[in-house]
């Protein structure tokens, strides 16, 4: 049985590594394949890049290194990317965490920090001295009198939507604004974002689509 198959696609060459084959066989067949290709005169004229798919097999770092080592022996060939149809449960959970909107109704009291991986729809009470901190966007429906931090640690694409006029501070990534100095109107439609000058700026919710079009592309799923 052949464990390495080369296919031509409209966007390039794909090498499929059979997921039920032994890795040792794959390495051997891969070497043979590249040697054949190199002898082929047509192939020998210009540099070539391959995509490698591994089916339902997940290569570890060590195995990837071994494949790269084989390819590096052939100066004209290179690997564009290695893809697989499967992923680790842990990675999958992390992805879900960071890509979904979490509903949060906890009261955040003075001195407490609520940390959320991903986006948050906050319907609780944020008291003075409390902090709501999310790696993604923050959508506020509840009372907000503390510190709201979106895009923690460095995601300045994140936005804060909701009534922040009574908050102590709004922060996005590393930008901070003291709300009392900003004269933010009392409105549920306020949007806080980092503008092109990397300064916190305020607008209305109707502008979200203009300032962050990517937000909507992502919300439908992945």
């Amino acid at each position: 049985m052949q464990s390495v198959i080369l296919k031509g696609h409209k966007d390039g060459y794909v090498i499929n590594l059979k997921s039920n084959a032994r890795f040792i066989d794959i390495l051997r067949e891969l070497t043979e394949l590249f040697e054949q290709l190199q002898q082929d005169e047509k192939m020998n004229s210009e540099p070539l890049s391959f995509n490698i798919t591994t089916g339902s097999r997940l290569l570890n770092a060590d195995e990837k290194k071994k494949i790269e080592k084989i390819v590096s022996r052939f100066p004209l060939f290179s690997i564009h990317k290695i893809t697989s149809e499967v992923m680790l449960v842990q990675d999958a959970l992390e992805m879900i965490e960071s890509k979904s909107i979490h509903l949060d109704a906890n009261t955040i009291r003075n001195g407490q920090v609520e940390y959320i991986q991903g986006d948050v729809l906050y319907v609780g009470d944020l008291h003075q001295g409390g902090m709501l901190r999310a790696t993604g966007n923050v959508f506020l429906l509840g009372k907000c009198e503390g510190i709201v931090h979106a895009g923690y640690l460095s995601n300045s694409e994140a936005i804060i939507v909701g009534d922040v006029h009574a908050a102590q501070q709004v922060r996005i990534a590393d930008a901070v604004a003291i709300v009392a100095q900003e004269k933010i109107a009392k409105s549920k439609e306020t949007v806080v974002f980092v503008n092109d000058l990397h300064v916190l700026d305020y607008t209305k919710h109707t502008e979200i689509k203009t300032i962050r079009p990517k937000l909507f592309a992502r919300m439908g799923g992945y």
Partner: peptide, 12 residues
């Protein structure tokens, strides 16, 4: 009141 808020948070 602010300190009470902090303490309630700890008590919870």
């Amino acid at each position: 009141v602010r300190d009470a808020d902090r303490v309630i948070g700890l008590l919870e």
